[in-house]
Write a protein that binds this DNA or RNA. Structure first.
Lengths: 335, 335
DNA sequence: ATTACCGATGTAATCGTTTCCATGCGCAGC
DNA sequence: GCTGCGCATGGAAACGATTACATCGGTAAT
């Protein structure tokens, strides 16, 4: 591949001049610029970003660490992030942590080794040494969707609590009284928020939330299956299940099918995070939808602010309930 | 951030020695190595990969360009690729082309600018200047799933033709005679293969494939909706629809719902690419499943072979039909 | 006519590594 | 007591860009 030297030689100028043209600095005679430009295209020269970044100490690259690419919510988020970044002239490198701390830290380190300009992260459950270090080092960083307590990092997320209250009210109105929830990983901030909101909403309706109705999940499909199994091993199983993410809702459906139970006849189902398929499942699933795209855009906006030396604050958007048939029929949802 | 010089100073050796320890070259006294190593950890030094790559001319990074991250098939593929690459000590940078040639070329160029060691690509429909150039430049490159005619690049894919024949036989056995198909982009290799196989299978059963039963799609949800609309504007609509990817199948379902039609009562539906949700849609959807994970692994194996100077050939795996209720009931699919 | 300045360009240091080559030292062989 | 050799280490040149600083005509101001 041709280097800047080759271009300089071909155009009969010094490398400095070529560089000036490439970064359009002023003070290059129009005719010289033209000569350089044609040398560039004749050699189909492309600058080596490694060398450039090494010298300038900036990569115009953002790192995005998410906990599970296979989760449609994160896929959509990643997509939105990439769009927003590209329109600002940044590229994005994605690291998929698969809900594992070690993998997450591996990606954080790899990204820092690549000298990304900023880090967007939706941290997995638990304490991350790498993230703590990065924050201390002053790497521009923004949390999206999930966060880690005690770190002074801006957070872009949607507050799901009002929507969870709406969901509980909806279930209550439909006559459900034995409501169960499937959580994410123990220390997951989003999951905890959803569980707390669920508990407080139940309380407001005078309903209990027994320990046995809290299924321990990990945001993965298999845990939805296990929790469902446990619920139906109880003498008095729940009459409604709220899965705190869409993959676990899939697990619930899989297991209900195995157990020969029908939704909503035998048990109702609702999920956090709405996805296109929920409209076509049997039955369509009631879900709480987050403004995923906007989350992505806002997060990138905040991060680039930080990267470019401006300040950035946290952003809280809101989620909303989309009622469908999986919780039983009522006036609103009948079609 | 600490550099190799700081480590050298701290350990009281030269940078050359530090480098030797880091890349564990032989010929460093055990005691010196220990001193260096402790300096490294005291300063929590991490090598600057930009500088390293600049010097060594290798990044241990693979580029993956796919046409649509939001398509579950590609998400799963990307995931498998990342896994396989990581286990071989490579990282992966993903570029999402969104089925647009210009975006695809943008990503290819960006990746080459980053001096990735090799390129894995599932090209979008049409002629790609950037890919052609890259191939000519001798960048190690492997196609996965889709390919471009006339380029001498190894291809890792699944041959869907036998499974398409199985599907047609299945539909025929269930009494369907008016079979329609929704294609991908016009020049898409995979889509063409699926259409050809479909046509030849129909022929084998003595059935025609009128132009009006070929819906022009683009592998995106909206095109599935449009094609469905067109089919049902016909005086005699089809009694079975085969969508050549899962997103278009989603579009078909959306539009059928709008039109008030039921599957499989009013029309049957089948899709290429199986995804977990197909088991839980109403009704469960008959699909042709590709060995996605293995595709990803094989593709990475081929690419790393190329990168590391070995030779690599094309790989063809096979896809298989998974019959469910969306084409009507029969012995096999009843449960 | 001298000075001062400006606009266009070149020279060379620099970024953080790797790696070729040189150096110094101890020891075996003669 | 040399010579030669191998081992551990250091010095310095790359890699390909950016950029501070120097240079060099030419023109305007005095």
């Amino acid at each position: 591949m041709a280097g800047i030297k080759d271009v300089a030689a071909r155009a009969g100028v010094s490398v400095a001049t070529v560089s000036r043209v490439l970064n359009d600095h002023s003070g290059v005679r129009e005719e010289t610029r033209a000569r350089v430009l044609s040398a560039v295209s004749e050699l189909s020269y492309r600058p080596n970003t490694l060398a450039r970044s090494l010298r300038t100490d900036q990569t115009r690259t953002l790192g995005l660490v998410i906990s599970d690419v296979l989760n449609p919510f994160f896929t959509e988020l990643a997509r939105a992030v990439e769009d927003a970044a590209r329109s600002r002239g940044y590229s994005v490198i994605i690291g998929n942590a698969d809900e594992q701390l070690t993998l997450q830290d591996h990606h954080v380190r790899t990204l820092l080794d690549r000298r990304i300009d900023g880090l967007l992260v939706s941290p997995a459950d638990g304490d991350s040494v790498a993230l703590r270090e990065a924050a201390l080092l002053g790497i521009p960083m923004v949390f999206v969707d999930r966060w880690i307590e005690g770190l002074d990092v801006p957070l872009v997320r949607a507050d799901g609590r009002p929507a969870v209250h709406d969901l509980v009210a909806h279930l209550y109105a439909l006559g459900h009284r034995r409501l169960a929830i499937i959580t994410g990983p123990v220390a997951s901030t989003t999951s905890n928020e959803r569980v707390d909101a669920f508990r407080s909403a139940l309380h407001a309706h005078g309903l209990p939330l027994p320990e046995t109705f809290i299924g321990q999940g990990d945001f993965q499909t298999a845990s939805g299956r296990r929790a469902t199994d446990a619920f139906f091993a109880l003498p008095e199983p729940p009459d409604a299940i709220f899965a705190t993410d869409n993959l676990m809702a899939l697990g619930v459906m899989e297991q209900l099918r195995t157990l020969g139970l029908r939704v909503p006849h035998d048990v109702s189902l609702a999920a956090f995070d709405d996805i296109p398929w929920f409209l076509h499942t049997d039955p369509p699933i009631t879900a709480i939808a987050q403004p995923t795209q906007e989350l992505g855009h806002r997060a990138v906006a905040a991060l680039t602010d930080l990267v470019e030396g401006r300040s950035a604050g946290s952003v809280t958007l809101s989620a909303h309930l989309t009622a469908r048939r999986s919780c039983g029929e009522d006036e609103r949802t009948r079609r």
